[in-house]
């Protein structure tokens, strides 16, 4: 763990940081959801951190714990060669977390993946759709309570036609392909 990173983090006194811990030689920072975008912006822009690369966004499901979900962000600084892991809680009743796409554009697909597999809602995401599975899929398969032997219905052409028409409308709209 980079000691300069810890001191920089301490000197900044960022709002919304709940806990700073070390896990297997890496820094783990627990953040409140409301402060996530602000913390991420500081981590990206402050020259002491310079986290210019969001490596991964994923989530962990802890059944029985409150909050049940933990959204995990892996950050890396290409400039300073250090890493940090951010963790944000999301409750089962309303699994909402602010989107970090305004901070790192690469978060777009990563957040879509996390939404697809865990059903985490990223508020402010420009296009929060399933990315791996199809729209008719029921449930979120990486949740611990997803039934292991659940069979999904085979999609017929009649099922996809409304979705195809909607996608066509999206493509025809002026917003298509534009960012924010």
């Amino acid at each position: 763990m980079s000691q300069s990173l810890v001191t920089a983090l301490a000197s900044q006194a960022l709002e919304g940081i709940v806990e700073v811990a070390e896990s297997r030689g890496e820094l783990v920072v627990r953040v409140l959801p409301v402060a996530l975008v602000e913390v991420c912006t500081t981590l990206r822009d402050d020259p002491a951190f310079a986290f210019d690369f969001l490596m991964d966004v994923t989530a962990v499901d802890y059944p029985g714990r409150e909050p049940r979900f933990e959204v995990v962000y892996h950050l890396y600084s290409l400039k300073l060669n250090h890493r940090v892991r951010l963790k944000v809680g999301a409750s089962e009743a309303s699994p909402h977390v602010p989107s970090v796409t305004p901070v790192w554009r690469g978060a777009n697909w990563l957040e879509r993946e996390t939404y697809d597999m865990y059903g985490i809602q990223f508020d402010g995401h420009p296009d929060l759709r399933r990315i791996y599975l199809y729209e008719e899929f029921e449930g979120h398969p990486l949740r611990k309570d997803y039934p292991k032997e659940k069979r999904q219905p085979l999609v017929t052409r009649a099922d996809v036609e409304p979705a195809q028409q909607r996608r066509q409308r999206e493509r025809d709209s002026e917003r298509y392909g534009r960012w924010q």
Partner: peptide, 10 residues
């Protein structure tokens, strides 16, 4: 995969 099934049919 189930996602590919309909495309296979097409």
């Amino acid at each position: 995969t189930l996602k590919m099934a309909l495309r296979t049919k097409v």
